[in-house]
Computed example of a mutant assay.
Amino acid sequence: MSGMNLRLAFAILSSGCWSAFQHGYNTGVLNAPQTVMSEWLHAEALTGANSSIPAKDDPKVTAVWSVAVAIYCVGGMIGGV
């Protein structure tokens, strides 16, 4: 146990940088099917949704999708521990 050395500093720095990259990338991958999922939520899952407004402007669809993305991020924090 000699303390901090070059290899340990490199491991800490690289894991900190790449973990942030992976989180941002995976959040982008999660948002890729947003249009398809919003249409499905609007048409099928949320019964009684107002069909006179588009799915992207429906407040129910927006609320459900934002909760799904937030749960993904919270689950990542819990899984990281």
Rank of each mutant, 00 (worst) to 15 (best):
S2K: 07
S2V: 10
G3L: 14
M4Y: 05
N5K: 06
R7I: 03
R7C: 00
R7Q: 11
L8N: 03
A9K: 15
A11R: 14
S14H: 12
S15R: 01
C17R: 10
W18V: 04
A20N: 04
F21Y: 11
Q22T: 09
H23F: 08
Y25F: 13
N26A: 12
G28P: 00
G28C: 08
V29I: 15
V29T: 03
L30P: 01
L30V: 01
N31L: 15
N31V: 12
Q34H: 11
T35S: 08
T35I: 06
V36K: 13
M37L: 15
M37K: 12
S38I: 10
S38E: 15
S38R: 13
W40N: 03
W40T: 03
H42F: 11
A43T: 13
E44R: 03
E44T: 08
E44H: 01
A45P: 00
A45F: 15
A45Q: 09
A45D: 05
G48V: 05
N50S: 13
N50K: 09
S52I: 05
P54C: 00
K56C: 06
D58P: 06
P59R: 03
V61C: 02
V64M: 11
V64F: 06
S66F: 04
V67T: 07
V67R: 08
A68P: 02
V69L: 13
V69Y: 04
Y72E: 08
C73S: 03
C73I: 03
V74F: 09
V74N: 04
G75M: 09
G75N: 08
G76S: 09
G76E: 03
G76Q: 10
I78Q: 00
G79P: 00
G80W: 06
V81Y: 05
